[in-house]
């Protein structure tokens, strides 16, 4: 059953070390991870667990110290900077805890921006951005600046922006972290809706309830080490750590 699905992202024995003066901080140590098309995955861990580092590697924003990251079966270490930017822009849509909208661009321009980097024509960009804003119930806010919107609205603009290039994966870093429970729930429902429509969603969170409420697979990180992987089976989660390790290591590429 596992092998039938298309693999999107794979982290194989990935470590990320930072040098801090004389000591080495092992932010991530020998982590294996595999994301299939259409999955809703959560990377879970308390602060300092290495989940942000994991997100950076999964989103190909950063390169590992050891190990390999595969995006669509391509080892990202073999890609040049502009190829990586292209892939990032096309295959991954980012949603950040602090929204990260560009303050000097209107809502619709913020949504249009990723398409510009992919060379989409201006008319097509505008049309798509209008559709996406409607999708997140902000069809009438296109000409507003981010500063004129509430936190929840801003995060919905960020969701619209993440969908601009119709990416295969949405990568959300603590998407509800800056929102109250109610608006956070609205944002999560949008993500869930997109997952139902076939998008792969990866969220990074410190909140186990949020992870288990929405995700199909949860990667539990602690102190830079992958503690366990749990998978939804019916109503409960079962430990599939060994399975994942085996799947990651035994999949062709050495």
């Amino acid at each position: 059953m596992v092998t039938e699905r298309k693999e999107l992202i794979r982290l194989r024995n990935v470590s990320k070390f930072y040098e801090m003066g004389n000591s080495v901080v092992k932010a991530l140590n020998e982590v294996n991870l595999k994301v299939y098309e259409g999955e809703f995955v959560a990377i879970m861990g308390p602060s300092g667990s290495g989940k942000s580092t994991a997100m950076n590697l999964v989103g190909s924003l950063d390169v590992p110290t050891h190990g390999s990251v595969f995006l669509d079966e391509i080892d990202i270490s073999t890609l040049g900077e502009s190829e990586l930017a292209q892939i990032r822009g096309k295959k991954i849509g980012f949603i950040f805890q602090s929204f990260n909208l560009i303050a000097n661009l209107t809502t619709i321009e913020n949504v249009m921006l990723p398409m510009m980097f992919q060379g989409t024509g201006i008319d097509k960009r505008r049309k798509k951005a209008e559709e996406l804003l409607k999708l997140v119930d902000l069809g009438n806010r296109g000409e507003h600046y981010p500063g004129e919107l509430s936190g929840g609205q801003r995060q919905r603009v960020a969701i619209a922006r993440s969908l601009a290039n119709d990416p295969e994966v949405i990568l959300a870093d603590e998407p509800t972290g800056n929102l109250d429970t109610k608006t956070g729930a609205i944002v999560m429902e949008f993500l869930e809706k997109m997952n139902r429509e076939g998008k792969t969603i990866i969220i990074v969170t410190h909140d186990p309830d949020l992870a288990e409420k929405y995700a199909d697979v949860v990667y539990w990180l602690k102190d830079g080490i992958l503690e366990k992987v749990t998978k939804r089976e019916g109503k409960r989660f079962v430990d599939v750590t060994k399975k994942v390790k085996k799947a990651v290591k035994g999949n062709g590429v050495k």
Partner: peptide, 8 residues
């Protein structure tokens, strides 16, 4: 942000 959304 610009780089994360595909800007080279």
């Amino acid at each position: 942000v610009i780089k994360s959304i595909g800007g080279t």
